[in-house]
Design a protein around this nucleic acid. Structure first.
Lengths: 164, 164
DNA sequence: TATTGTTATACTCTATAACTATA
DNA sequence: TATAGTTATAGAGTATAACAATA
């Protein structure tokens, strides 16, 4: 991602973090920016909107899931999920099969094309993840992911995550 | 933060993460949402826009810093920093004193009122940080923050973070 | 020619609420 | 009365580029 705005200055900015180095909000803000800004290099050409790859992955792991459950799992609004899923349906990646019992919700699943797209996207986000964590030892990498999962699990009370 | 959209269902959504449980992008996305959505409970009444508290903290730790250096440190656009700083100046928290040497950039510093505001905000974001990490041991907490700092430092090449 | 900072503009993402259809 | 999902709309956040002043 070439960035004409950020200065290509060779001199590094020296910066003190002060108390912010112990603050989760600050560190998560910058870390999030690090991750999202570098992700473009890996997935932009696939043409997915933000969040759509994640939706594919969750549907792949949870065949027949309802949209509201996706919204809860991602802390997204259901209206937001509606738009993203509608686009995935229009592009032939996802299909909504009306559930036998409760006709209010749609059971979501991936079409063959959607499974193919997910396989490709999965490869890419794996590369991206490895790239951002290049300097990390295996233990550090697993530790970071584990602590993020713990943070999510202890704060997202509506969802019961099933880990392998 | 009461949320009329998210369902207050007592039944938990059971969800498999699949390969996403090992993916940094997914975990950072949800973790970020966990943090930002809960932060409102702690800082909304202070009336700051997103990012402004962080700017106060960085200026407090780096008296005389330039706006572009703040932008680099936060992976923000300089135009975005302009707007946020202008508002902080208008509210009397930050002042721009033209630097003797290079008259292109403004050396930023906190006014007495800004220092007071930062002390209050610092207290709040500390409480928020502790709240999100309630279930963590001291070792886990410090480990998570350390790994986030490492992730930022190894990916933000333009900035040289000075830790204590 | 390059950098700091401003402005204007457009775009993406997120939030709110009213609505339907089902239960 | 409550839930799943849709729609419309507004707002917050971010991106792009042209510009002035200075180096």
């Amino acid at each position: 991602m070439s960035d004409p705005d950020l200065t290509k200055d060779s001199a590094k900015t020296r910066l003190k973090l002060g108390v912010l180095q112990h603050n989760l909000g600050y560190l998560m803000r910058v870390a999030r920016n690090v991750v999202t800004q570098s992700s473009g290099d890996y997935v932009d050409d696939l043409g997915f909107a933000t969040g759509q790859i994640t939706l594919l992955g969750l549907i792949a792991a949870n065949e027949g899931i309802a949209q509201n459950d996706l919204a809860r799992a991602l802390l997204m609004r259901k209206s937001q999920v509606t738009g993203l899923i509608q686009d995935l349906v229009a592009r032939g990646h996802v299909e909504r099969s009306a559930q036998g019992g409760d006709r209010r919700f749609n059971a979501l699943s991936l079409t063959p094309a959607g499974q193919q797209a997910w396989r490709q996207a999965r490869e890419r986000i794996g590369q991206h993840s490895a790239s951002v964590l290049q300097g990390f030892s295996d233990a550090e990498r697993e530790q970071l992911l584990r602590l993020l999962r713990k943070m999510i699990a202890t704060n997202l009370h509506e969802v019961d995550f099933e880990l392998e």
